[in-house]
């Protein structure tokens, strides 16, 4: 088991010629992508384009069929790497929130800190409460997920990921399951994180967010990156036909 050694010079995420097939269905057909430290990269595209799969390959929730993924210089696709250790430094937020329903909000935030990072109880709680405060839910520490609205649950999910003090955050369509009036609160939290310099890779349909906060916009279709560049450029003046077709439907 190799203890992962972070390379401070390396980009946060580096993806080289990534392929992923589910049986006969090839979902990723050769992806090359770099996310620099502190960057916010937004990935957009039609459903089935492989964008979620791409995200999930970064923290090995999906195992690539071929190609390499490097996180802070560590090759996560190496079979000897300690995946759990790598994952504890990558925060992920899911479309379906995935809060632990049998635990209180506070416990949701502290359990991984305690079990994985082995912090003592008061340290965990301190960090947890600070993060709850950051997402605007300090008063919900003792509530249970079932009592929260979708938007509140998602913000708790973000706070949970942040409590592990990750070096980067992955967001997988985190507002797609929310009622429209709740989306804004979640996006606000994400904007704040971006402004604080968090490295973020965001799969989303929220073009406004991408334009405002993104450093790089990636358009995927059919398992490949069709177009990539500065959000204002890609959104305002798309070069490819498929990009134009997609944007005309969603904008």
């Amino acid at each position: 088991m190799t203890a992962p050694k972070v390379d401070p010079e390396a980009p946060a995420i580096e993806i080289r010629d990534l392929h992923k097939a589910f049986g006969d269905n090839e979902v990723l057909s050769g992806i090359d992508l770099e996310v620099g430290q502190g960057d916010v990269v937004c990935v957009i595209g039609p459903s089935g384009s492989g964008k979620s799969t791409l995200l999930r390959c970064v923290n090995l929730l999906e195992e690539p069929s071929s190609g390499d993924v490097f996180v802070e210089g560590i090759q996560v696709t190496d079979p000897d790497v300690d995946v759990d250790a790598v994952r504890s430094r990558i925060g992920m937020v899911f479309q379906q929130f995935n809060l632990f329903p049998h635990l209180s909000v506070l416990r949701n935030l502290t359990i991984a800190q305690q079990r994985v990072k082995k912090r003592d109880k008061s340290e965990c709680e301190g960090i947890a409460r600070a993060n709850l405060d950051k997402v605007g839910l300090s008063d919900k520490a003792d509530a249970y997920p079932a009592h929260l609205s979708g938007g509140q649950q998602q913000r708790v999910a973000i706070a949970r990921a942040l409590s592990m003090e990750p070096d980067m955050m992955l967001f997988d369509e985190v507002t797609s399951a929310l009622d429209p009036e709740l989306v804004g609160d979640v996006l606000a939290v994400m904007k704040q994180l971006a402004n604080e310099g968090m490295t973020m890779m965001v799969v989303t349909h929220e073009m406004g967010f991408a334009r405002e906060v993104g450093d790089d916009l990636v358009f995927m279709d059919g398992g490949v990156i069709v177009e990539q560049g500065n959000p204002r450029d890609v959104l305002g003046d798309p070069q490819h036909e498929r990009t134009k077709a997609f944007l005309s439907k969603v904008l």
Partner: peptide
């Protein structure tokens, strides 16, 4: 399945995720 995924994405090992998250539920 999302429960296991969330637990593992926080860095919990498969066993730890089973014991603390999946089996209680």
């Amino acid at each position: 399945k999302g429960q296991m995924e969330a637990a593992r994405s926080l860095g919990m090992s498969h066993t730890r995720a089973m014991i603390s998250i999946v089996i209680p539920q």
